[in-house]
Amino acid sequence: GSLMYASIFGNVSAIIQRLYSGTARYHTQMLRVREFIRFHQIPNPLRQRLEEYFQHAWSYTNGIDMNAVLKGFPECLQADICLHLNRSLLQHCKPFRGATKGCLRALAMKFKTTHAPPGDTLVHAGDLLTALYFISRGSIEILRGDVVVAILGKNDIFGEPLNLYARPGKSNGDVRALTYCDLHKIHRDDLLEVLDMYPEFSDHFWSSLEITFNLRDTNMIPGSPGSTELEGGFSRQRKRKLSFRRRTDKDTEQPGEVSALGPGRAGAGPSSRGRPGGPWGESPSSGPSSPESSEDEGPGRSSSPLRLVPFSSPRPPGEPPGGEPLMEDCEKSSDTCNPLSGAFSGVSNIFSFWGDSRGRQYQELPRCPAPTPSLLNIPLSSPGRRPRGDVESRLDALQRQLNRLETRLSADMATVLQLLQRQMTLVPPAYSAVTTPGPGPTSTSPLLPVSPLPTLTLDSLSQVSQFMACEELPPGAPELPQEGPTRRLSLPGQLGALTSQPLHRHGSDPGS
Results as ranks from 00 to 15, higher is better:
Y133S: 03
R240W: 10
R216N: 13
S451T: 08
L398Q: 02
A343S: 11
E193G: 11
P478R: 08
L162S: 10
P481D: 10
E406G: 10
S348F: 05
K170H: 10
Q418S: 08
C337Q: 15
C337G: 10
P305F: 06
Q401N: 06
S357M: 01
E406Q: 08
R236F: 08
P168A: 07
S382Y: 04
L209G: 02
D182I: 05
Q363L: 05
L365G: 13
L230C: 10
G496R: 09
N403E: 04
K170C: 12
I211Y: 03
L405I: 11
P387E: 13
P475F: 06
L132T: 04
S432Q: 15
M197Q: 10
L448Y: 14
T442I: 13
G159W: 01
V149N: 01
I157C: 11
A343Q: 12
N338G: 12
R386A: 10
L380Y: 06
L376D: 09
K154L: 03
S302V: 11
P387Q: 04
E328N: 04
Q418C: 06
Q254H: 06
G173A: 12
P369H: 09
A131L: 03
V258Y: 10
K185G: 07
V147S: 12
T455I: 07
T372M: 09
S227K: 08
N338L: 10
E257N: 12
G233A: 12
N338F: 15
L426T: 13
D189E: 12
D196Q: 09
T457G: 11
S286F: 15
R176H: 03
P369V: 09
Q361Y: 13
E331F: 07
N172Y: 10
A260F: 10
G233T: 11
R273H: 01
P291R: 14
G153C: 09
G226D: 10
P446S: 10
L405R: 03
P279T: 05
E297T: 05
Y133E: 01
D329H: 15
G476C: 07
K185I: 10
P371K: 10
N219V: 10
L426Q: 06
P373R: 08
S304D: 15
R388T: 03
N403D: 01
H506N: 09
P320T: 11
L340W: 15
P439V: 10
A433P: 13
A397I: 10
V258L: 10
D182F: 08
E253G: 08
G159A: 03
P481A: 10
N377M: 05
E297P: 05
T130G: 09
R360Q: 09
P502R: 08
P429E: 08
S235H: 10
R144I: 03
L398H: 04
V450T: 15
L498Q: 05
D412M: 03
M468G: 05
E295A: 11
I186N: 01
N214L: 02
A397S: 08
T444F: 07
C470N: 07
D412Y: 01
S348M: 11
R240A: 13
S432R: 08
P317C: 15
G269Y: 15
P316G: 08
P279L: 12
V149D: 03
P284D: 12
G438F: 15
R273C: 13
A177G: 02
S202N: 11
R367S: 10
I211L: 11
A268M: 09
